[in-house]
Amino acid sequence: MPEDQTAVLSVLAPPSLLTVQDLGRSGHRALGLPAGGAMDPWALRAANTLVGNAEGSAALEWATGGGLLRLEGRSALIALTGADAEATVDGAPLPLDRSIRVPAGARLRIQGLRRGQFLYLAVAGGVDVPVVLGGRGSYLPAGLGGVAGRSLRGGDLVPLGAEPANLPTTGVILPGDLRDPLPPPQGSVRVMAGPHGELLDTEGWERLLGTTFTVAVTADRTGYRLSGPPVVTGRLASLPSEPTCPGALQLPPGGQPIVLMADGPTVGGYPTPAVVCAADLGRLAQCAPGTTVRFVLIDVPEAQRLYRRRRVAIDTLDRIIRGPTSPTYSSSAEQMR
């Protein structure tokens, strides 16, 4: 039953990077403000859908494992998705990829991440921090959004929204097509030719698509540097800065690719021969430093088909969880904002 009490997640022990994230803020790129949002938007959508939230509701994002939180004020329906984490509630193992009700006072502990890099915790009602410039997510470079524009610290209280009146069926397990085959050793990420695809010659394309790259330790929310033999040896043509986007695979001097991620810049000057498709960007985000990655070339129509297929899968899950006769379910368009 919904309860009116104010509920918070109290941070007892913070992990190294814990932020509030949603699906990002659009409409401000002309100011140099990236959309940001969840590094693995599919995992965020899945977590929200499992607990009956709109898919873009704000949730918590762990960038590595660790940390201890306590739920205060009321019980809550929660779901953990994304990275494969060892998690416990009051000492009992907490299953991933399904919704579960936890009681008021429950202590949620996240141990290390076994695979993947980003873990999401959605709570029915969502994380209720103020909307800043169209989004609730933390954008750390400018210190905005989330809780005080920074990573959560010990003692922080994360406000939760009221639990929706019509809660979904609990215990539903995330279907396989919404769980990314978690990365490598054999994982591949699909790319399209980018704005400067023609700057790469045949050998360059062969190296880009034939190399097994390793995600470097400098990978963060801004971009993933990939190490491997250089894709190009000489310097590609110099270009004035052009608009860019998350997923853009840039080749800086040195020829080792950088893929821009959620908080990456809105414009950039490095040649961009390829762009990671939106359907697979979460999969790349889940490649922790040291993970190997290979790229596979597809065309834009195929990338858009993959994207739509995953959106439809989220919608279908939403429908299953809410049940066909649920009075609160109106249309998928409304869910998508």
């Binding site: 659009s26 409409g27 002309a30 809105t266 858009q304 998508m336």
Partner: peptide, 22 residues
């Protein structure tokens, strides 16, 4: 969804759920 100017180019961001690139 968004329009972004650069030096000699601009980007138009859109939602591929509602239209296609062609």
């Amino acid at each position: 969804l968004d329009v972004v100017p650069a030096y000699a180019s601009l980007a138009v961001h859109y939602d591929p759920l509602h239209t296609d690139h062609v």
